[in-house]
């Protein structure tokens, strides 16, 4: 069998943030609608989910390996718990030329939310230990603990 004939590939996300990677385009059925970033290993997943729900997201899928959340403003997040992959799905009503900016805005809000969750977690750990229930360790496909 001849080797695959790659045609297009995407650059890896950059720049990196502490809890969430930078943003890059992800494949999707419409122009610039889907964007990808990765949650850092060891992030407080339960706390993150709680903060998303507090920020107006509604849980649409609560699979053991996956969360899909929809925001009241029309955008969605699809989050793979095993790998930390997070797909931002900009609302279809956003004009194509404004979608990248919309995705970056959502991304910034997620970064801020993660930072706040981490800060509260550190504070809570010191002051009222166990405020956020800890997620059970999740193993990646390779068996490594994330």
């Amino acid at each position: 069998m001849s080797p695959p004939d790659p045609l297009v590939s995407l650059p890896r996300p950059e720049p990196e943030f502490r809890h969430l990677s930078g943003l890059c385009r992800d494949s999707g059925c419409c122009l610039d609608l889907n964007w990808r970033c990765e949650l850092a290993p060891g992030s407080d997943r339960a706390g993150f989910q709680e903060s998303l729900l507090a920020d107006g997201y509604e849980l649409r899928c609560n699979h053991s390996a996956l969360r899909v959340l929809r925001h009241a403003d029309g955008h969605e997040l699809a989050w793979v718990l095993t790998s930390g992959r997070l797909q931002i799905r900009v609302g279809i009503d956003v004009e194509p030329e404004e979608r990248e900016a919309a995705a970056r805005d959502i991304h910034h809000r997620l970064v801020r939310s993660l930072e706040e969750t981490a800060a509260e977690d550190r504070q809570g750990f010191a002051l009222e230990r166990g405020r956020y229930p800890r997620a059970a360790p999740i193993r990646s496909q390779s068996g490594r603990e994330a």
């Binding site: 695959p4 045609l7 297009v8 590939s9 995407l10 385009r25 992800d26 494949s27």
Partner: peptide, 8 residues
């Protein structure tokens, strides 16, 4: 298609 490269 080079799937591992996550093509658009």
């Amino acid at each position: 298609v080079d799937w591992p490269s996550r093509p658009e």
